[in-house]
Design a protein around this nucleic acid. Structure first.
Length: 270
DNA sequence: CTCCTATCCTGCGAGC
DNA sequence: TGCTCGCAGGATAGGA
């Protein structure tokens, strides 16, 4: 589910739910590992603390207490939900119990997600090497262009590289390139500065529009995190291989790039 | 260094 | 209906 917009929607939902909650009373692990072992002992540092805010960095969530944060990555299939007593489901791996009786469940069938305890984000190995946030003002066409210098990988692969820019995953990479009229197979170093500006503008536009639409699903956050109407309705190329391009009618092409299926229109994207 | 591939894991839809 | 196959929104290790 989660690229940047979905994680941001989850962040907002979690922050709303956790606002004014009493202290975290118990962390219940239903298994010892996901993609990696869950550091239960370190995480237990947070017990007895209030959750003060929820931060998003790239596709990571940081649930902050004054002692440190619980780091949560949703992988491909991770979700958070409010799970009242009786609402236990297969693949619930972690329950957070709060003083007032609220229980939050982390569910992740494929277990590609991960957890950690973070004290200083700057020093955390998973966070330290991340590239710029696409929605921040410091992510500009020039910055992107600079970081693509000399790179021979397909532009679409570079967009999914979290060192170049964070939060753009397989769907939004295809969608942003379509919106910018740039073919995903273009060698990264061949992107002109001018076209980099266009691409950055489209990335920002598409991510923020998606967050806005996902925002409407915050109310049913407890049921189905992140599954906003955006997905079914507004993809222009993703998942539409062989179908006519929404702009010109030519067949949408597909190709595996960086191990992931990629969609584009060779008439509209040069 | 950079780039590419395989891999972790379960669920679901397509096709037989 | 039931089975198998291929594919799925991420990230990383290891090899070339």
């Amino acid at each position: 589910m989660p690229e940047l917009p979905e994680v941001e929607v989850v962040r907002r939902g979690l922050e709303e739910i956790l606002k004014d909650q009493p202290v975290l009373k118990k962390v219940e692990l239903m298994r010892a590992d996901l993609r990696e072992p869950i550091p239960a002992k370190k995480i237990s540092t947070l017990i007895g603390e209030k959750l003060l805010s929820v931060e998003r960095r790239a596709k990571y969530l940081l649930l902050w207490t004054k002692k440190g944060a619980l780091l949560s990555h949703l992988g491909m299939t991770g979700t958070w939900r409010v799970a009242p007593k009786g609402d236990e489901r297969a693949h619930d791996h972690i329950y957070l119990h709060f003083g007032g009786g609220l229980r939050l469940a982390y569910r992740d069938p494929r277990r590609f997600g991960c957890f950690d305890y973070v004290k200083d984000p700057q020093k955390h190995p998973k966070l330290a090497e991340l590239g710029p946030e696409p929605l921040n003002a410091d992510f500009t066409g020039e910055v992107l262009w600079e970081s693509l210098r000399g790179k021979t990988v397909a532009l679409k692969v570079a967009l999914m590289d979290q060192k170049i820019v964070v939060g753009v995953g397989n769907i939004y990479a295809s969608e942003a390139l379509f919106a910018a009229g740039i073919k995903p197979t273009l060698e990264s170093r061949r992107l002109s500065k001018e076209r980099a500006e266009v691409l950055v503008a489209e990335i920002k536009k598409i991510l923020s529009r998606s967050i806005e639409q996902g925002g409407s699903s915050i109310s049913d956050f407890a049921q189905a995190t992140g599954e906003s109407g955006y997905f079914q309705t507004t993809f222009r190329v993703y998942g539409r291989g062989g179908e006519p391009c929404v702009t010109c009618g030519q067949q949408v092409r597909t190709k595996i790039l960086g191990g992931r299926n990629t969609f584009w229109c060779s008439h509209c994207q040069k």
